[in-house]
């Protein structure tokens, strides 16, 4: 599932990501790899952690920092489904619906998530901007169906009944 739809990307001038702490984090990575290019995925993670999504301007900044072109960086960003190329809700929910989870009732978990978050539809953000829900492929926890990821929290064995309680923890 590619990045979820959100509000249109804002046009505000780009505040560089790689200053201060994020810069230090990135530079600490350089000695671990023989090329700077190899730091691209980690650099993109830093951008997403700092800004919530990866804007075209941020891609250009990453390109400059690592000696790549913006087009190249964009090509890499769009290959990987976890990088957001649009802003998403405050809490980003990924729910697995691949066969093993489907066999164990993931469809009902999806329904409960869409209803309780108010998203209504997969890939959309709730009107209050609180949640985005997307469907994803196997999360590698099929024995604990249905797993969901809420931001960085991996939650196992989710049932429709558990959904309201889980969401209450994310304001």
């Amino acid at each position: 599932m590619s990045a979820a739809q959100g509000a249109a990307p804002t046009e505000a001038p780009h505040e560089p990501v790689f200053a201060g702490k994020p810069r230090e984090r990135l530079e600490a990575l350089f000695p671990k790899y023989p090329t700077k290019q190899a730091c691209l995925l980690p650099a993109l993670w830093i951008v997403q952690e700092e800004r919530g999504w990866i804007s075209p301007a941020a891609m250009a900044e990453v390109a400059t920092v690592l000696g790549l072109t913006p087009a190249y960086v964009r090509g890499v960003v769009t290959f990987y489904t976890m990088y957001h190329t649009h802003p998403v809700g405050r809490h980003f929910i990924q729910v697995c619906t691949t066969s093993p989870c489907h066999l164990c009732g993931s469809d009902d978990v999806v329904k409960a998530l869409l209803k309780e978050t108010g998203c209504g539809e997969l890939g959309t953000t709730s009107a209050d901007g609180r949640f985005t829900v997307i469907e994803v492929e196997c999360l590698g926890a099929c024995g604990f169906a249905t797993p969901i990821l809420v931001d960085n929290d991996f939650i196992e064995s989710v049932t429709p009944e558990r959904v309201p309680g889980i969401l209450a923890g994310y304001r």
Partner: peptide, 12 residues
């Protein structure tokens, strides 16, 4: 012997 963790970003 160096051990480096590299995080993927969603791609089977």
């Amino acid at each position: 012997i160096d051990i480096v963790l590299h995080r993927g970003a969603g791609a089977y």
